[in-house]
Amino acid sequence: MTTISNDLLGAIGGVPRPETDVVVDARDVNKYFGRLHVLKDVCVQVKRQETVVIIGPSGSGKTTFIRCVNHLEKIQSGRIFVNGHLIGYRETDGSKKLVEDKEKNIATQRQEIGMVFQRFNLFPHMTALENIIEAPIHVRGVSHDEAMVMGRALLERVGLAAKENVFPNQLSGGQQQRIAIARALAMKPALMLFDEPTSALDPEMIGEVLEVMKELAREGMTMIVVSHEMGFAREVANRVIMMDEGVVVEEGTPDQVFSAPTQDRTKTFLSKIL
């Protein structure tokens, strides 16, 4: 269904640039919602071309964590670096205090970080193709013609070339999510974040979205995926991170985590979900 050559991927710039070996470096991240301590000294590193799947019960902070990675959520302490750049904050010289960065700088940083949402969040007043070319044209300053060529290639890539002039509300959930992935890829990000990308989908549509994501992982995209799809994690992930109550409980290869979990909380969680 969605077999796309690596050449095409290279041609449209989907392959991450080899800048640093560690794409995401989160150090001792703490996050509060009011008094609720949702992330407790979270440390996560993601290497270039790695696919990391974060699992854990609801309320464990996994979604909050990836939202912090592109600064959709503020953090109260710690540092998150993407490609060596501190995300969302500036360090003041004298003190070690974090000051929130200018909105414009944050916007620039986010250009490198693609995000796919649980509820797709496609722009309903734009067609599938318009959704994809919007940011390249208005944020990156790509010419309209160039953006159209790239947009069509991306639609082809997610298997929806026939749907370029269709509005989101005329597409199935699975199709919308594939368009949303294409929209994020159009910015040629160095990192892709997936926030439970299949949780809002009917069961028969989960496969087509996972297929696109697998393809992406195989082609070497750096990805952090929050997901309950254990099959996907087993097959695609280089590393699985188990979170519970705002803490990274366990971390390892899918085999280690799924077959021989060392922590009781992981065992309990897996016994419920598998």
Binding site: A107, F123, H138, V139, M187
Partner: peptide
Amino acid sequence: GQTEAAKSLGMTYGQTMSR
């Protein structure tokens, strides 16, 4: 979610509002 999607594509406040 629309604002979040626009922001995560690197749009500024002005672009998010107007577009």
